[in-house]
């Protein structure tokens, strides 16, 4: 059983609902109507394209093509992390392998032991699950990396004194890692605590609309939340760990070359 299809006219009517937003903007004079239409237009085009190539990927269901697409998703996620952290793009060569290891290991674990689709590389499972893992990991990694490097930079004098007295980079940044991790973890835990009360998870909603038994949908949702949680924890830690190679000089000091001007 699938979800009841939405007709083209139905989608047009959905778009008409934006008139309410346009009216709000007119009343509040925020002047964002043009931006609203540009963003909504982009969303529509992007999702239509996703629909086209996902249909193709699912139909093809070839392991090499699916894995190739996943690598593309990982590269895009890393690009986005670096774009938003104030760090130079050269850090990509350290955060990209970190994402492959962390998100890759978690997805292999869950695909083989928990979800167990047949075949294991089934694109219909692998791609949406990787999308959720990467999307969430990316947000946490942005916050954690940003906070880590900015806190070292903020107290560079104190950090340098520790390195000068013989502390290794790991020893000297232990406090920074703690601060950064807490900054990223706080919102994730708060979101987890209100799940089902304040927010209804998208995947579960989608599955129920698609005709799944709500209990099955909930089991999937719980498993995916666990996968997201572990993947984001590992991704944030590994991205920082791998990036230290470039983030600090061979003498252990902060490498200012990593920051955008």
């Amino acid at each position: 059983m699938g979800a009841h299809d939405i007709s083209t006219f139905g989608l047009v009517l959905a778009a008409c609902s934006l008139l309410a937003s346009v009216t709000v903007y007119a009343i509040t004079k925020v002047g964002l109507t043009r931006d609203l239409f540009i963003s909504m237009g982009r969303m529509g085009v992007q999702l239509s394209l996703v629909g086209v190539y996902l249909t193709g990927l699912f139909r093809l269901n070839h392991p090499a093509v699916t894995v190739g697409y996943i690598f593309l998703m990982m590269a895009a996620a890393n690009y986005s992390v670096l774009k938003n952290t104030g760090l130079k793009r050269t850090m990509f060569f350290f955060t990209f392998p970190a994402t492959i290891v962390s998100v890759g290991a978690v997805s292999v674990y869950f695909m083989t032991l928990v979800f167990q689709p047949n075949p294991l590389y089934d694109a219909r499972y692998l791609i949406p699950i990787m999308g959720m893992l990467l999307g969430n990991s990316m947000n946490r990694t942005i916050v954690t990396m940003e906070r880590f490097y900015s806190s070292v930079r903020k107290d560079e004098s104190g950090y340098s004194a520790l390195v000068a007295m013989g502390a290794t980079v790991n020893e000297a940044t232990a406090a920074n890692l703690k601060v950064a991790y807490r900054a990223g973890l706080g919102p994730a835990l708060a979101n987890l605590a209100t799940m089902g009360i304040v927010s209804l998870p998208g995947m579960m909603t989608g599955q129920i609309l698609g005709g799944s038994d709500p209990l099955v949908a909930i089991k999937y949702q719980v498993a995916i939340i666990l996968a997201i949680y572990v993947a984001t924890d590992l991704s944030a830690l590994l991205c920082i760990t791998f990036s230290k190679k470039k983030g600090f000089t061979r003498y252990g000091f902060l490498n200012h070359e990593i920051f955008k001007k």
């Binding site: 107290d155 004098s157 104190g158 340098s160 004194a161 390195v163 000068a164 007295m165 013989g166 406090a175 061979r250 003498y251 252990g252």
Partner: peptide, 23 residues
């Protein structure tokens, strides 16, 4: 050079201009 830094740093103490408290 970096290879000798652990040995060199075991002999050195650096007092910066500002001693910044941590939390």
């Amino acid at each position: 050079v970096p290879e000798y830094m652990p040995e060199i740093r075991r002999q050195v103490f650096y007092l910066p201009q500002d001693v910044v408290p941590q939390g």
